[in-house]
Design a protein around this nucleic acid. Sequence first.
DNA 1: ATGTCACAGCAACTGTGA
Length: 255
Amino acid sequence: MRIATFNVNGVNGRLPVLLRWLAETEPDVVCLQELKAPQGGFPEAAIKAAGYAAVWHGQRSWNGVAILARGAEPIETRRGLPGDDDDIQSRYIEAAVKGILIGCLYLPNGNPAPGAKFDYKLRWFQRLVRHADALLAHGVPVALVGDFNVIPTELDVYKPERWLGDALFRPEVRDAFTRLVNRGWTDAVRELHPDERIYTFWDYLRNAWGRNAGLRLDHLLLSPKLAGRLKSAGVDAHVRGWEKASDHAPVWIEF
DNA sequence: ATGTCACAGCAACTGTGA
């Protein structure tokens, strides 16, 4: 069983990249972020033809999240985080797939910081922590998966000093991530590779991919039951080198 | 600041967010 997450940066603009990667790696469950497509603009037919059923929460221009399952129908359990009825951004969708509850999230970027966008990020994070607590309380196997827009530690960034003031790396955000994980979650990739420099994102600017100037932003957090079944984890970094690539690479775990 | 990408609105290019 393989679960993957991929910030596609435009599900229609990147459709050839997405389909090529799906055919190559055949993950069982896929969480997508940054669809950048309205609800009616999701390429459902092409994804179905690739063997995947999907639930998604679209939004025009920005955001948008989806959960894909190979040979199974994801049963949607929630769209949108609780705690703010005025938040209309499509950043969270949740579904049950093959006995696992999957929360697919796209945490706000938060730049520029400080400012209104950073405040929104911190509020969204607090809502996520509360909801994550509720999920753990159910006692079922849960994975919280997606683009957290958080560089957790200095090991997750090519040049830490350059990112100190950035909304991806500011102390408040790193603390929030650590607090979330410490409530009972396992950062799957870091658990299996405690000392490795691992990146999942390379900026389009300044030849970041060519210089391997990367960040680790995409994470898979596992509830205790699921963490005990973890066998392997990695990043499909080569996908970042393809034509018309997203600025993120897919990240995956295996049970 | 740098300088790359997708998408919206609109029909060439600028604005926005990342």
